[in-house]
Amino acid sequence: MSLIDSISLPRSIRLPRADGLIQWIVPLAIIAVWQVASVTGFVPTRVLPAPSDVVLAGWKLLVSGELVRNIWVSFWRASVGFLIGGSIGFAFGLANGLSQLSARLTDTTLQMVRNVPHLALIPLVILRFGIDESAKLFLVALGVFFPIYLNTLHGIRTVDPQLIEMGRIYGMTDGELFRRVIFPGALPSIFVGIRFALGIMWLTLIVAETIAASSGLGYMAMQAREFMLIDVVVLSILIYALLGKLADSASRVLERLTLSWHPAFQKR
């Protein structure tokens, strides 16, 4: 809501100032309360370490270089997996949205595969790929594929047929029709798919790294659990939250830039 209110194209690229502050008030307040609760012993640190301990753990890992390495590995897996799965999903969405033949050929199959929860494939993937990189990339790509496929397809199918007719009347070639009418019309829906996919991307990665990895944030958390380093576990969770938020913000900025025509993104 705050975003929609604050959207105005030229300003939106710099984060809107007032809203930028407002949205951090609640998280900061929670951290403050948490710190007080830990220091006063209200929450035993065996259950939940104080924020200061978490920061300290983070600092140590940062100094040793372990933190940056693990974040980088996770980030790399997430983005490469997203790119692979996203582009395949987008390509199928386009093909099936534009071509009846292609849709009849592949859509039913894809819909069937969609009903298998992709995380259920983990044992199979481990058997096939072991715990090397391709296993994680495969799972992330698979998870990301469906939201992007489905929303691209939906976006293209729901482009206003009257606009398409208009384009034809005014002599647009197929290429122009796609570029000027169909693709921009499908874009809002595609962005919905991207936002969904980003959520699934992190979820998949956490699970995959926790179960089958020898590096990355999920692995770091699992290691810490074995050594009872609860502050590191909490740190990993917080970093996941932060990365998720970052990915979401990035997609929102992109959305605002490309959908500036949309009534929801205009100055009031």
Partner: peptide, 29 residues
């Protein structure tokens, strides 16, 4: 094709194109 034009009850403008660009669509080829 440019000799005949139709106007409908709905304006059928491209929401993602500015007014001028929408008019340019009418130039056809």
């Amino acid at each position: 094709p440019e000799d005949i034009r139709v106007m409908f009850q709905e304006p059928r403008l491209l929401p993602w194109a500015r007014v001028l660009a929408n008019v340019e669509v009418g130039l056809g080829r």
